[in-house]
């Protein structure tokens, strides 16, 4: 079970969180015209990366905040975690 550093609460076990997918996906702006391709990329197309991956988790049984987690999908190593509004350098 992963041990995730919630930027708001500290180290917590994975079973307090729910997974939210790729954090690098940007939703097209509301009210903006988008092409089929752009929309498909947003809704469906995901890279299934092996290695370092920035992903979303929600601390659902804790502070309920969505956070970003930089994790290696092969080794499960977690490098850094970020608040929802924190810029990932």
């Amino acid at each position: 079970m992963l041990y995730i550093n919630c930027p708001h609460c500290g180290m917590r076990s994975q079973n307090e969180f729910s997974y939210g997918g790729d954090a690098s996906v940007k939703r097209p702006e509301i009210n903006k015209e988008v092409s089929d391709q752009e929309w498909d990329n947003f809704v469906y197309n995901r890279k299934s990366l092996r290695g370092k991956h920035l992903e979303l988790w929600q601390h659902i049984s804790g502070c309920r905040q969505w956070i970003k987690v930089e994790r290696d999908t092969a080794t499960h190593e977690i490098f850094r975690t970020f608040k929802a509004d924190e810029e990932v350098a």
Partner: peptide, 13 residues
């Protein structure tokens, strides 16, 4: 609830 929190925290803060 999670759905609303997702949009409020991440998409339209």
């Amino acid at each position: 609830l999670s759905h609303l929190e997702y949009y409020l925290q991440l998409v339209w803060p």
